[in-house]
Design a protein around this nucleic acid. Sequence first.
DNA 1: GTTAACTTGCACAGGTGTGTGCATGTTTCT
DNA 2: AGAAACATGCACACACCTGTGCAAGTTAAC
Lengths: 212, 212
Amino acid sequence: MTQPTPRAPRSDARANRESILAAARETLAKDPRASIDAVARAAGLSRRALYGHFEDRAALVTELIATGAQRFNAIADEPMTADARADLARLAARLWGAAEDVQLIAAVALDDEHVASTAAALAPVRRMLLEIVRRGQAVQTLRTDMDAETLARIIEEGARTFVTRAPMFTASVTDARSIAVRAVLSLGGLSWREAEELVRAHPDLLAKESAR
Amino acid sequence: MTQPTPRAPRSDARANRESILAAARETLAKDPRASIDAVARAAGLSRRALYGHFEDRAALVTELIATGAQRFNAIADEPMTADARADLARLAARLWGAAEDVQLIAAVALDDEHVASTAAALAPVRRMLLEIVRRGQAVQTLRTDMDAETLARIIEEGARTFVTRAPMFTASVTDARSIAVRAVLSLGGLSWREAEELVRAHPDLLAKESAR
DNA sequence: GTTAACTTGCACAGGTGTGTGCATGTTTCT
DNA sequence: AGAAACATGCACACACCTGTGCAAGTTAAC
């Protein structure tokens, strides 16, 4: 039998696939219900060509969520220290570094039926945050006027909000990150002077390194 | 000439109009792009009947925004005291009382072309908040690690988030309001113990009265 | 009880988005 | 250079939403 030699996939096709993913990440983060056509055009392709790379709108979104989940997993795998407040600041700074993904996941989770998969993507970060909160409350370095679950959710909602919105407040990227981190620390119960002191004591939070 | 006696409008029609407004406020707050049919059904009417009360989808939304703006105006007209921190807490508590409107305006502003009218509706509250922030910063009772405009926006975004989300965190309504108020105070720079003390010193914040 | 106001259901036109089939070019691999 | 992979534009069916016209039924006003 003559074997029908399966030719290797073309290289430009792979590049186009990446273009679509990038364009979709950017476009859907702004407007989660942007049309497929808008995404395709943003990627410099036709709508018809996009369907050659992805079965479905759902398939495209699912893949975006998957890569987001991957980055969140990486963040949640970072080691923690003895200082819950510093860990919280670090977590906020790292989420800032993954701002695009945060924005996408938040936008998609809000309005689509992808709630389940986005929740799964966020799960490891949620676990980490809850642990940080518990540790901080145990030694009174984080607020104890609400239970750990509630505080964790408050911080989560706040982080989501500030990470996605802070860039609109100021021109400087460094400022925006610093603002987001300090706002999260404030939600943790620290006074603004404590937060400022903590950020000063850990200059790595504002370095490029923590943004990856 | 015989005057064609214009009969008075029927009373059930007026009631239905209110039903539509209430249903729209609730439905559109959850999903700003819910269909007219969904709104009409939620009000117990047919889609066709709704068009007897409102010209347009836009007309319906515009009226919702208008009544929201009215409540915000009322909030912004309340007198202020000498203590910026207490004023901030009071503002948060009052916004909590208008949670439905906050939620609606936020949802509609996000995704529609009503950005201009929602911004106008929020303007008086924004003015008040900015003034509170300026006064608080002047006497160092609110954080001074960011300029007034930025801090005001941070607080605004946080207030929006917590007012609309806090109800999902806890079963108790009183708890949710208290949490929202304390979170806002934290964003203002207070430590959680200061916030707690402040709330305790002003029990009216948690009374029914402040919810109107 | 009669009339006018109101509601309902249906049908229709127009708009936008999705996903597919197909013929026609263009680019990459070998 | 030739074949397979890929992109494009068009047409189509389907679905959902909007806003309107109209006939028939129901309800409140007088």
